[in-house]
Write a protein that binds this DNA or RNA. Structure first.
Lengths: 266, 266
DNA sequence: CGCGGCGTTGAACCCACTCAAGAGCTGTGG
DNA sequence: CCACAGCTCTTGAGTGGGTTCAACGCCGCG
């Protein structure tokens, strides 16, 4: 998923975003807010402000929302860190990971531009997962306290926030069902089709993209091993459904892939 | 998990709840509200009102919250139904299920008293899952629109609602990690210990309970088969960790069970 | 150039699934 | 009251998909 290729509004280095007026260091974001950070954001159509009326949008604009650059491999927050902010992805891809007692890492989700990360920290006040950039990326830093205050006045905004949390729940449930009820090759097919769908929704090419994650990361997410992911991709290529060259993916026959995991029994 | 046994406040047929003033038929709930339905509810300590200040609690009390009896095996809502209400469990156990394309049923969660069900319906306005009672049960019917209105005034209440949604997210992530990274026997151990913990939190006996779900349902939840669940339980019994007689479970050595799934490698 | 990370492919093993049979409990209807 | 049907649970045996272990090629980078 090379988010800077394909039919994006702008394919230059800034990813179509407005020039950064204020920039975050790697520490906590500065207090001064960027005014209306959403207007020029290519991800806004799938983010918090999507579909909000003027009043709610203005309300959102009053929050002190900072932007923060995140370099590839760096974390925006780590497990057990104090929860203060939600983060909206402007560009780049993130992974959420959970460290098990055994020390192994489980990927619980991949986050594309427009996704809001961090809802699972609301119960405990600490982040139960680590969010790490798979490529150079940028996020909006949403102060949770201010956001709930803002919601208090604006019902639509509140419902929008709840919807974002609910959407993640829904995705988790489907992922769970997928992992439990399908063979590993079907999961890889579902992963490719799901990714393609999400990219199309965001205005990227649904058939040509660059994976930003390793085979091991895909395997972790899908509950299988890197070898099995690799074998599955090779099998699809052999059958003519896709072409693969390292991270470059081209979906030749999406419908065949879709049929692959919708098949009743295999 | 016989929720009426053990150290519950009241062990009579009403489960310690206040007598039902108004009772639901199987259809949608009546509009007239029960005043302060929480005060006498044994689940309130782990439900929405937990930890709320007076003002927020009074605010919650102004909602028209109906109670609804649900007979064993009946659904409070079904997949694809219109989303109007969240449901708080007063007593009884529920399962949430997802029907896959293949027609198979995947259990995504078990809900104990105090849990609030239905957050995953917020994105689409329709319920993506079915919620079904595993025993005769009762829920509070929370009108979603009224609830968001109420939240708009009361920040603590809003945060409480978000916390409930976040908690479900967190549980899902842990379940996912569990299913992917452990052997089936470890999952069954984790299931027993997790259930025990949740029961203790709610004031029930953590070591003696009656499972309200079948082996097949446990298997669906844990991503394994009913035979494997049965074999695991037998194995634990053989090793002296538990005793089992059909649905009656007695945990003899909880620490041994806990060690079972915390083991680094097996 | 050489090293390290990533990806591919092969071979062997094993855990859990599938299939099957039987026992125990529950509810129902004659 | 008993017979029977249906469901749940247990246990056994065989099989296979996917994991593990291993070797090698490719690519980027210092």
């Amino acid at each position: 998923m090379d988010l800077r290729s394909a039919n994006t509004p702008a394919a230059d280095g800034t990813c179509g975003c407005a020039p950064l007026r204020q920039l975050a260091t790697d520490g906590p974001p500065p207090g001064s807010g960027a005014t209306a950070p959403c207007v020029a954001c290519p991800a806004s159509r799938h983010c918090l402000p999507a579909g909000l009326g003027d009043r709610d949008a203005r309300c959102l604009g009053r929050l002190t929302i900072a932007r923060r650059r995140v370099r590839k491999g760096h974390a925006i927050f780590r497990e057990n860190e104090h929860f203060l902010f939600l983060y909206a992805v402007r560009f780049g891809i993130f992974k959420s990971t959970l460290t098990l007692d055994a020390g192994a890492e489980q990927i619980t989700g991949f986050h594309l531009p427009g996704d809001v990360i961090g809802f699972d920290a609301t119960p405990s006040g600490r982040h139960p997962t680590t969010a790490r950039a798979l490529e150079d990326a940028e996020v909006c830093v949403l102060p949770y306290g201010q956001l709930t205050d803002a919601c208090a006045g604006q019902r639509d905004l509140l419902m929008r926030v709840l919807r974002l949390a609910g959407a993640e729940l829904e995705r988790d449930h489907r992922l769970l069902a997928l992992i439990v009820h399908t063979h590993s090759e079907q999961r890889v097919a579902a992963f490719l089709v799901g990714l393609s769908d999400r990219l199309r929704e965001r205005g990227f090419s649904p058939s040509d993209f660059l994976l930003r994650m390793t085979r091991a990361e895909i395997g972790s997410y899908l509950g299988t091993t890197l070898e099995t992911v690799s074998r599955s991709l090779s099998a699809f290529a052999r059958r003519g459904f896709i072409t693969v060259h390292r991270r470059e993916i081209h979906l030749v026959n999406i419908e065949a892939l879709r049929a692959e995991f919708e098949a009743k029994d295999v």
